[in-house]
Write a protein that binds this DNA or RNA. Structure first.
Length: 500
RNA sequence: GGGCGCGUAGCUCAGCGGUAGAGCAUCUGCCUUUUAAGCAGAGGGUCGGUGGUUCGAGACCACCCGCGCUCACCA
């Protein structure tokens, strides 16, 4: 049994010995179930001096204070911690067994609620049962509340690498981590509830795709053995969801993982969560208002406010959000009109801004770089950047009145892109031409240019209604609303190099 | 990929050329309302890895591995 544990040390060895001793006493160290009828929060919130309420609770031992024939301990359940009190003269053999239990063990307890001399609401144990023996020492921090009511934590489990690799431990010993993930879940639920209430249908489309598309990104490649073909993990849901609009759904959305084979940093994880929504007979103007309403709904239902602190910024989500034109924003900062400028002028302009310009850099890349350098960092309050150059947007519909532009917007908050949306291109002839232009870019060395998706073209040749489409980066939204600076802190298991 | 930083006991850290340390955790003894419980004692380390410099290396040098921050890339 012990040989299965690689890094045996004395602490672990000791716990195996305790496990054996417990087994010899006839105690089964891994129980099948325990009837719980209360929790730590319920006990503390519904305390009545005059009533010795009986409760059954279960949780993990997080602190033990033994005083000979009596002991105090804290157990932690899903809701928090509560103190328990055990006496040898009351629980006899169970007290002897308790001596073989450790911090980290999961126990079930029955007892009555009381208040100690020092005023802590606790459970006076009448029965204690081991539910799961913990064989590894938990890196428990000590907590104390000072005179001012501030919580001071000593020796907190802080090593980021260990916290990410062993998230289960992180979640046990750092309760605020759990909170963020609960908010993450609530944010997604609020979004789904809103979309459902608006009458849109949640759907699922392929993760494994023979062609990848819908975004500019490098894919992961996998292989199907029986078909003997390479398949790509999707970089976006877009092209499949639009096929469903062709099929006659009036509004479809999907909340799911996308995969992009690119660098990792505090804003990027190789797999990340995206919500994409497509609504027929609507355009990007409608979508801008929809996004404001949806985000406001999420903020209010989950957090009860539209005011958030992010880093040193105060962010207010109150609609309507500011709107600025992509081209005018750049022109205002640099005097450069990126639509009319020649390639050479763009190149010069970029160089002046300190952007590294390689000779292969295409026009689209240059424009994007310039925008990222001069405009993006200033977009702290929610801002719609609207009407993008056509060459940046091969799937968006041409602007109804402005040449060289498409009807597209991105929402920027705290300097990051939070969502991307457009009036979807539904003209199959134009779409084919855009794909062909992408192929030329690919041939010129742009690894992220689109492939031609003949089946998608066939679909819209049947006729796709006018449609508004949206993509929202869920991880970044969660970061923003929880004041987290790294995407790794809102993903349970962020990508890491394998352990040796 | 570049720059900076980190890796010493289960956890948090000190040590920066001369016998591997502290607090918590663990173990033994005492202790029936404690709460960073207390008191007395004990065990615990290939100092991330491999080479090198040196009489002598956690410490200095080189390379490697892993992580963090940051820049680039990634709309």
């Amino acid at each position: 049994m012990e040989s299965t544990v690689k890094d045996i040390n004395n602490l672990i060895k000791r716990r195996y010995e305790e496990l054996n001793e417990l087994t010899e006493k006839g105690i089964k160290p891994y129980a099948y179930s325990f009837d719980v009828d209360s929790d730590s929060e319920d006990i503390k919130q519904n305390y009545n001096e005059n009533e010795k309420r009986n409760v059954k609770i279960a949780g993990r031992l997080m602190a033990i204070r033994r005083m000979g024939k009596a002991s105090f301990a804290h157990i932690m359940d899903y809701k928090g911690r509560v103190q328990i009190y055990l006496r040898k003269d009351e629980i006899g053999d169970q007290y002897t067994a308790f001596k073989l239990m450790d911090i980290g063990d999961v126990v079930g307890v029955e007892g009555y609620v009381f208040k100690t001399k020092t005023g802590e609401i606790s459970v006076h144990v009448t029965s204690l049962e081991l539910l799961s023996k913990s064989l590894r020492p938990l890196p428990v921090a000590k907590e104390v509340i000072d005179e001012d009511g501030n919580k001071i934590v000593y020796d907190q489990f802080a090593d980021k690498e260990l916290r990410y690799r062993q998230r289960y431990v992180d979640l046990i010993v750092n309760p605020e981590v759990k909170e963020i993930f609960v908010y993450r879940s609530k944010i997604i639920t609020a979004m789904r509830t809103y979309l459902d209430a608006e009458g849109y249908l949640e759907v699922e489309t392929p993760v494994l795709q023979p062609l990848y598309g819908g975004a500019a990104a490098k894919p992961f490649i996998s292989h199907h053995n029986s078909l003997d073909i390479d398949l790509y993990l999707r970089i976006a849901d877009e092209l499949y969801l639009k096929r469903l609009i062709v099929g006659g759904f009036n509004g479809v959305y999907e909340i799911s993982k996308d995969f992009r084979n690119e660098g990792m940093d505090r804003l990027h994880n190789p797999e990340f969560t995206m919500m994409e929504l497509y609504v027929s007979y609507k355009d990007y103007n409608w979508m801008m208002e929809f996004v404001e309403k949806m985000i406001n709904h999420i903020c209010k239902t989950v957090f009860g406010t539209l005011e958030f602190t992010y880093g040193k910024h105060q962010i207010n989500f109150e609609a309507p959000w500011k709107r600025i034109s992509f081209v005018e924003a750049i022109e205002g900062k640099t005097g450069l009109n990126v639509i009319n400028a020649t390639d050479e002028e763009l190149r010069e302009g970029a160089k002046k801004l300190g952007i590294e310009v390689s000779s292969v850099e295409g026009r689209a890349k240059l424009i994007d770089e310039i925008f990222g350098t001069v405009v993006e960092p200033d977009l702290i309050q929610p801002t719609y950047v609207i009407d993008y150059p056509l060459i940046l947007s091969p799937l968006a519909k041409k602007h109804r009145s402005k040449d060289g532009l498409v009807e597209r917007f991105e929402a920027y908050i705290a300097g990051w892109e939070i969502c991307n949306a457009f009036s979807e291109l539904n003209d199959p002839i134009d779409q084919r031409k855009r794909f062909e232009d992408q192929v030329k870019l690919k041939e010129a060395g742009d690894e992220e240019a689109h492939q031609i998706d003949e089946d998608f073209l066939r679909a819209i040749e049947y006729g796709m209604p006018p449609t508004a489409g949206l993509g929202v980066g869920i991880d970044r939204l969660v970061m923003l609303l929880n004041n987290q600076s790294s995407i790794r802190d809102v993903i349970f298991f962020p990508q890491m190099r394998p352990e040796v």
